[in-house]
C-alpha cells in the first residue's frame, strides 16, 4: 500500500509537483495519468526514494520514504522511466545481479530468476547479451529485474512506452497477475485508453496537482463526459494553469 500526502518538489524555479496526495491500496491497480510534464515521474521518483520531497511525506506499507528509505525500498519494485540495462551482461545476468544485491542466496536466486524468466517470457533471449535488444525485450528484462525481491508494491513509470501491440498485451497480463497476487500496482501513463482498460483507480495529474482521483466511471460522472478522453481534458482544465 502506497500513501502520498501533500508532496511538493521543485527543481530550481520549476515547481514540478505542488501538493500531490493519493493512496494506492493493495490488490488494486492505480493509474497515474497526465500530460507530459505534469509531474508524474517526479512523484514516482519520490516514491522509489531517489528524490526527496521538499514538503509532505509518502509511505510504503507504513515506511517513510525519507526517514526509513532503505525499508521502503525493500517493499518496492521500481521500473524508472527509460530504465537501462547493462549491455555486456546477458538478460539472465542482469536479473541475477539485482537478485544478489537484494540479498537472495544462490538457490533462491536461481529459482527466482528462472520463474521471472518464465513469467515475462524472456526464455528465448535470456542468455544473450542485452546489447541490441529491442525496446520490448529491454522493458521485459527491466521489469523482471525490478521484481526479483518479490516486492509488495510495484511502481512502473510509463512501462508501455515504445512497446508494440503484443508486448503491450503481455505487459497488461503481467500487471493483472500482480493484482491477483494481492500486490499494489502503481503505474503512470499518458495514454487514456490504457489506463481506463486496466486501472481500478485513476489519479489524473496536471501542472503538478491532482485534478481528480476516482474510478473510470466516477471520473465520467464527475466531469459529465461519457467519453473518457473528453473527461481527461476537462479534468485537466479544472486544475488551471501553473
Amino acid at each position: 500500500m502506497i500513501s502520498v500526502s501533500g508532496i511538493h518538489k521543485s527543481f530550481g524555479k520549476v515547481r514540478a509537483v505542488r501538493g500531490v496526495s493519493f493512496e494506492a491500496p493493495d490488490g488494486k491497480i492505480t493509474g497515474l495519468l497526465g500530460p507530459n510534464g505534469a509531474g508524474k515521474s517526479t512523484t514516482l521518483r519520490v516514491l522509489y526514494t531517489v528524490l526527496r520531497p521538499d514538503e509532505g511525506n509518502a509511505t510504503i506499507d507504513g515506511c517513510d520514504v525519507v526517514t526509513d528509505s532503505l525499508a521502503a525500498r525493500r517493499r518496492i519494485g521500481a521500473l524508472p522511466h527509460g530504465a537501462g540495462l547493462y549491455p555486456h551482461l546477458t538478460a539472465r545476468e542482469n536479473i541475477a545481479y539485482y537478485a544478489k544485491l537484494c540479498g537472495l542466496d544462490k538457490d533462491a536466486m536461481d529459482e527466482r530468476v528462472e520463474s521471472l524468466i518464465d513469467l515475462l517470457e524472456i526464455g528465448d533471449f535470456a542468455d544473450r547479451r542485452t546489447k541490441g535488444f529491442s525496446q520490448g525485450q529491454r522493458t521485459k528484462v527491466a521489469i523482471a529485474r525490478s521484481l526479483v525481491h518479490s516486492p509488495q508494491n510495484v511502481i512502473l513509470d510509463e512501462p508501455s512506452n515504445g512497446l508494440d501491440v503484443m508486448a503491450t498485451r503481455s505487459l497488461r497480463d503481467l500487471i493483472l497477475k500482480l493484482k491477483d497476487a494481492g500486490r499494489c500496482v502503481l503505474f503512470s501513463s499518458h495514454v487514456m485508453q490504457e489506463v481506463a482498460a486496466l486501472c481500478d483507480d485513476i489519479v489524473i495529474i496536471a501542472n503538478g496537482k491532482v485534478a481528480i482521483d476516482d474510478s473510470a466511471d466516477g471520473i465520467r460522472n464527475r466531469t459529465g463526459c461519457d467519453d473518457l478522453e473528453d473527461a481527461f481534458v476537462k479534468a485537466i482544465e479544472m486544475v488551471g494553469p501553473a
Binding site: L70, P80, A83, Y86, L101, G103
Partner: peptide, 14 residues
C-alpha cells in the same frame, strides 16, 4: 547516461 543508475539506486541497498 545508460539509464541504469536510477533502477540501481531504487534497490534496497545503501
Amino acid at each position: 547516461e545508460r539509464g541504469s543508475l536510477e533502477p540501481l539506486l531504487s534497490l534496497p541497498v545503501t
